[in-house]
């Protein structure tokens, strides 16, 4: 039986799934998927068909930074450049 992790367990773990990221940040799944495909959210994946895992702390922080930049009026290419410069 594969149980849904409680919020407490999610907040205590190092890695989270994209579904858990939607719960943590309130961002839409399609938005996070787009960010991932654009290379804005780094992830780990053991094999091609396995779940993508994200570092919880750094990814949540990254999403809130992207949200802030969007609110400041930056376009996606500009946000991508800003993130690249920071890395």
């Amino acid at each position: 039986m594969s149980r849904q992790r409680s919020m407490e367990a999610i907040l205590a773990s190092e890695y989270v799934s994209i579904g858990e990221l939607t719960r943590l940040t309130g961002a839409r799944y399609s938005t996070l998927k787009f960010y991932t495909e654009e290379g804005m959210l780094p992830f780990e994946q053991a094999e091609e068909n396995l779940t993508r895992r994200y570092f919880r702390e750094s990814t949540v922080e990254l999403i809130s930074r992207i949200k802030q930049m969007k609110a400041d009026g930056l376009s996606i290419p500009q946000i991508k450049n800003a993130l690249k410069e920071k890395r």
Partner: peptide
């Protein structure tokens, strides 16, 4: 949506 549409 994420749980259903993602692999895994």
């Amino acid at each position: 949506r994420a749980d259903v549409l993602e692999d895994g």
